[in-house]
């Protein structure tokens, strides 16, 4: 494909077009990934996650400026929510990254979730692959503002930075399950406002409660808007990457994520296939009726449908 050739040679427009193809799930998408797959796996993928308004975009902007000083090429995927009612979206993360727009070593792509619920868009992982093949040394994924259970970022990133801010609740919030468990590094942003130290202490206490941790995540206090302590945060991100490489954790984590992605792909195809077969044979109505009248049960029907593809 001509576009892939161009993208591999550094053409931004071609890269952008390929991302659109992958997003729109067009028939080309599979061919694109098949072709570029050998070129992937080189970039350090960093996830930036946290609640809405925590400062994820501003922090990303400042981190990328430091990465650029080290002459690293950076790709950014900024995810914002799609309206479940209209399918439209306002993608506004670029506002905080305007200085980066003209940097030839930075590629920023905004992405609507388009119905995907885990904090990412469906096309995010494939877009990481494209940016990786495009030659980005680092790919940053900025998730949608998360609540308590959007943890898909762990399936896509090597290093997850959980951005927290003061004033979101008491210490019980920090010991709940969900997003608080996925941070490899915690950044307490807006640390110039009252209560930041307390937030950091609560996170530290939560982390100290965890047992059997191979590595205790560090907590870094930053003020992204003032560019404060961002160097310290980047240092921790780099340390985490080295730690993972040296202890074979990176390989383990990536293999796990590859397996998860594969399982999802198979599940999706299988589901589509079974449903299509059932509908094509006009059996959907009759099995639904037999369930409605309680003649049978969902598990029996499931086994019957599945037995047909064996």
């Amino acid at each position: 494909m001509e576009l892939i050739e161009k993208m591999l040679n550094g053409d931004k427009r071609a890269c952008a077009r390929l991302i659109s193809s992958v997003e729109n799930n067009s028939n080309e998408a599979e061919d694109i990934i098949k072709t570029i797959y050998p070129h992937t796996g080189k970039a350090h993928v960093i996830g930036i996650t946290g609640p809405p308004g925590a400062g994820k975009s501003t922090l990303t902007d400042k981190l990328v400026k430091l990465l650029r000083k080290k002459d690293l090429r950076v790709g950014i995927i900024a995810v914002d929510p799609t309206s479940p009612y209209t399918g439209g979206a306002i993608l506004g993360d670029r506002i905080r990254m305007n200085d980066l727009a003209l940097d030839p070593g930075v590629f920023i792509r905004s992405m609507g979730t388009r119905g995907y619920l885990g904090g990412l868009a469906k096309a995010t992982r494939n877009t990481v692959k494209i940016l990786d093949a495009f030659g980005c040394d680092v790919v940053i994924i900025e998730t949608v503002g998360v609540g308590q259970s959007e943890v898909d970022i762990v399936k896509a990133a090597d290093t997850v930075v959980m951005v927290m801010v003061p004033g979101l609740g008491d210490d019980i919030q920090s010991i709940k399950a969900g997003v608080m468990e996925i941070g490899d590094i915690f950044a307490v942003n807006k640390s110039d406002i009252l209560g930041a130290q307390r937030t950091a202490t609560e996170i530290n206490m939560m982390l100290d409660l965890s047992q059997n941790l191979e590595r205790r995540p560090p907590v870094v206090m930053v003020t992204a808007s003032q560019n404060q302590n961002i160097d310290k945060l980047l240092e921790e991100i780099e340390k985490h990457y080295i730690y993972m490489k040296e202890n074979d954790i990176l390989e383990k984590r990536r293999k796990l994520n590859i397996k998860r992605e594969l399982v999802e792909l198979v599940e999706e195809e299988l589901r589509k296939y079974v449903i299509k077969e059932t509908e094509n044979k006009g059996e959907m109505e009759s099995v639904t009726l037999s369930l409605y009248t309680k003649e049978t049960d969902p598990f029996t029907i499931r086994d019957i449908l599945l037995s047909k593809i064996k």
Partner: peptide, 22 residues
């Protein structure tokens, strides 16, 4: 899908963003 880039953009920034965002 609306990519909102905010205030005080230069034409260069606008075009760069438009291309990356396809």
């Amino acid at each position: 899908e609306v990519i909102y880039t905010g205030l005080r953009q230069t034409p260069e920034q606008i075009v760069a963003a438009a291309i990356q965002e396809d």
